[in-house]
């Protein structure tokens, strides 16, 4: 069994991140027995839902799902409604309400838009676990404006040890960036410049139209101990940990997305003339040989 799940996860790591939902659905279609394993272990883009009671948007994922229904963090209600849906104990729900408000502030300060949701649940050994979800989508007003989406999933579990709490945080960020380009757009200076250059040479110039898409995900994990004053300390502690983690991952994503993939393109094709470089090298060798003689 583990082998099949391993193969499924290896497959999902290789297939295009833009098609994760479709591919997970296809895998479940051919192996329905593994649906829970897959849904629990492959991070998928978060779904946006609207709370029927408050009209506020919230995020749906495997952690607030019970059967086919999803629980809203704002009203604590399941949609479609469930009579016996799992909900946190009243004490934990109180903490969940405060956590949702706190991370809503965090969302506004870093994302200036988007949607956040926090879900908490009890653990068997007396501790609790939770997930902090953040999502922002940029939709282009015109086809040639850049578009993108950011999905953060921070899962943590905590165990209290006297005046300390131990936290294990697993964070995943899914990021997608898309830019479309066309000859008729006025936006790009480089394209206009190059077209003018060809025009000057007497050709009518290339007509161009294309798309560049960067998509992927990143997962990191950390374990830390923080002091505990009362139950609300869990929110300040996880808040600091998640903020630190997102700052670190944002830097790493920038490196991986923009640095590494660009370098690989330059490993495929060289802008500079390689023949020219080769001749230079040979000439240099000859000169060195000549001097030595």
């Amino acid at each position: 069994m583990a082998d099949v799940v391993d193969s499924m996860l290896d497959l999902m790591r290789r297939l295009p991140p833009t098609r994760t939902e479709e591919n997970v659905a296809a895998l479940i279609g051919i192996c329905p027995d593994y649906a829970d394993d897959l849904l629990g272990s492959v991070d998928q883009p978060l779904q946006l839902k609207t709370d029927r009671a408050t009209g506020k948007e919230y995020l749906a994922c495997d952690y607030n799902r019970d059967g086919e229904s999803y629980r809203s963090p704002w009203s604590n209600e399941y949609d479609p409604p469930l009579d016996d849906g799992t909900v946190p104990t009243p004490k934990l729900r109180k903490l969940e309400i405060v956590a949702n408000e706190a991370f809503d502030t965090y969302r506004e300060m870093y994302y200036e838009g988007g949607v956040s949701s926090v879900y908490l649940w009890e653990l068997e050994d007396g501790g609790f676990a939770g997930v902090v979800l953040l999502k922002k989508i940029m939709s282009p007003a015109t086809p040639y404006e850049p578009s993108g989406s950011w999905d953060s999933i921070h899962v943590f579990e905590t165990a209290e040890r006297g005046r300390q709490a131990h936290y294990k945080l697993t964070s995943t960020v899914m990021l997608q960036l898309v830019t479309r380009r066309g000859s008729d757009t006025q936006g790009s200076g480089a394209e206009k410049r190059s077209e003018n250059k060809v025009d000057a040479k007497g050709a009518e110039g290339w007509k161009r139209e294309g798309e560049v898409s960067l998509s992927g995900s990143m997962t990191r994990q950390t374990e830390q101990d923080w002091p505990l004053q009362d139950s609300s300390s869990h929110i300040t502690n996880t808040g600091k940990m998640i903020e630190e983690m997102e700052i670190k991952m944002r830097n790493l994503l920038q490196e991986v997305y923009f640095g590494k993939t660009r370098d690989i393109v330059y490993d495929l094709r060289s802008v500079d003339d390689l023949e020219h470089a080769r001749r230079q090298k040979e000439l240099q060798k000859e000169l060195v040989g000549f001097i030595k003689r």
């Binding site: 790591r13 290789r14 295009p16 991140p17 833009t18 697993t170 380009r181 040479k201 007497g202 050709a203 009518e204 110039g205 290339w206 007509k207 161009r208 139209e209 294309g210 798309e211 560049v212 898409s213 960067l214 998509s215 992927g216 995900s217 990143m218 997962t219 990191r220 994990q221 950390t222 374990e223 790493l252 991986v256 997305y257 590494k260 993939t261 690989i264 393109v265």
Partner: peptide, 21 residues
């Protein structure tokens, strides 16, 4: 014991046409 995993895919398409001088 820390997980580090990522994957990113760059996919580009670029369609062109030119009338020869």
């Amino acid at each position: 014991q820390t997980i580090r995993a990522h994957q990113v895919q760059l996919a580009t398409t670029h369609n062109l046409s030119l009338t020869l001088p």
